[in-house]
Amino acid sequence: MAVTSVLRSEFFHNYRHSASAIIGSGLMALFAFAVIAGPFLVAQNPYDIAALDLMDSYKPPVWLEGGDPRYWLGTDGQGRDVWASILYGARISVFIGVVAMLASCALGTLLGLVAGFYGGIVDSVIMRIADIQLSFPSILIALFLMSAVGTGVDKVLIALTAVGWVVYARTVRGSTLSEIEKEYVQAARVAGLPNRKIIRKHVLPNVLTPLIVIATIQVGTFVLIEASLSFLGVGVPITQPSLGLLIKNGFDVLFSGLWWTSVFPGVAIMMLVFGINLFGDFLRDELNPRLK
């Protein structure tokens, strides 16, 4: 207990003295708040047709000529408040990023544990699949999968999980291989514990720490991949526009000079992913014992 409390305090000390950690976690907290409270922060539900007024279409941001104080970031072609669209879109982007990360982590950890613990043919098959997959860029695999199954939030989740599990499986397998050599696992074996129980109670808790950093940064990566897929029109459907789809819709009118419908959702993605990466970098430095 003493050890953990010292670690905790050191962690917290470093956190307080790291500008990037504070900015990063601040941005993440901001988005967490926006995702939870978003609908209560805006007067207009952008997906309620009755709340839209075509008379208000393509209003520029409030600081430009013709801006309307009700829509401080302007409106799109349907008179939809860009700010409200971003808050609703961020919910979908963050939801996809987080759920796909959790699913990848669960699947990858399971496969990594099995591969590392049992070895043999299971290990070879899982790791060869991982090798092949790693030699192709995630975005291309996801693009290909989405082109095969069509658009949908559920399909994006499946495609992201299919590309995301590999890093966890590799990391967990490596840690598992070194853990099962250790005495406590040998002792558990000698004591006659069934394999399942050894894996769940003894190995699993000891291989999780390195995953924290991977998982944090992966949420950002997934948000970007999802945005790219939606931008290409093979991601989320029009009825559930994520930030990426908002950018795509805005791109169509960019050449008319109506930049605000696409630029602001992009700024939102950038802030979200930048925050995640800043905090992820801090976590990596903190949790990597080699750097200390």
Partner: peptide, 21 residues
């Protein structure tokens, strides 16, 4: 870090808007 966090397609759009449009 900002370069890693930017959606590439969005950068392209911003460049098109600024330098072309």
């Amino acid at each position: 870090l900002l370069g890693i966090s930017l959606p590439g397609f969005w950068v392209g759009m911003v460049l098109i808007y600024l330098f072309a449009v």
